[in-house]
Nucleic acid binder design. Sequence first.
DNA 1: CCGCAGCCTCCCCT
DNA 2: AAGGGGAGGCTGC
Length: 285
Amino acid sequence: MTFTPWRSLGKKTGFTESSLAETLEGGQSFLWAKTASGSWLGTWGDNITELRIMSGSLEWRTPKQRTLERKEILRYLAIDSEYDAICNSLPWRSDPVLADAMKRFRGLRILRQPLSETLFCFLLSSVKSIPQIKDLCLKTAREFGEELVPGIHAIPTWERLAEVAEQDLRALKYGYRAKYVAATAARLAGEPDFLENCETMPYVEARSKLVELPGVGSKVADCALLFGGAKLEAFPVDTWIAKVMSDRYGMVGWSLDQIASFGRIHFGPYAGLAQQFLFSAVRAG
DNA sequence: CCGCAGCCTCCCCT
DNA sequence: AAGGGGAGGCTGC
């Protein structure tokens, strides 16, 4: 596979090796992998991109048969003029736990992934570790997804997934998640505008709409909306976040929904970004 | 409204 | 060496 020449996005993106790695592989997306040369190769929707940091500057290239505009990379990676202001607006001044996490992962972003594939990946995520989720996603893409370039496949559309028998998903070791995917695919195939409508709704409405889907509870809905719907006020609470909120914020015995409500209020309109900083920090130890 | 077992499979542990 | 317990949740009771 031949690639375009490397192009620079500049030194001012704020990405460091650490925050780029954490952004691409820290549990937001399951479709990136580090290459032998230390760069990152990944997909979102029909897009393929390779990223690397050279002398402090973020660089990108694509396969020649599937090129992208610079602005599409900037959009996906959420590299925009608002980032610094958003970080600054988080309550780090009065929150030393958050301040420490932000310092350790300076430059960490919330990706702008397609809602459809983000929902799919998180539907597989329950009681799975990141490597296991990646494995399921890649197997599914290879089996049922469009081949974008030789050897690299997209996550299949919900329309395509609706044609797949639950039994064939079980064969890929989905376990009990197979019936969630099959049932959600059936519903979305019958309502082609469902996800598009969710994207245009305010966060609270979109969340209650998503939770109607089989296998989608508050955590999966929040992840889909934060990482795939650019709803930055979503505050997904998984076991890691529950642990940090219990250990560091004294919220011992709080329910997951209570923690989520607290998070949205305490961290504000960009609570999801705060969540990602905390998540990275607690996972790193 | 809350709490809890069960669900698939994998992995780690004894 | 085989078997128990738990893992980045959801559902139904």
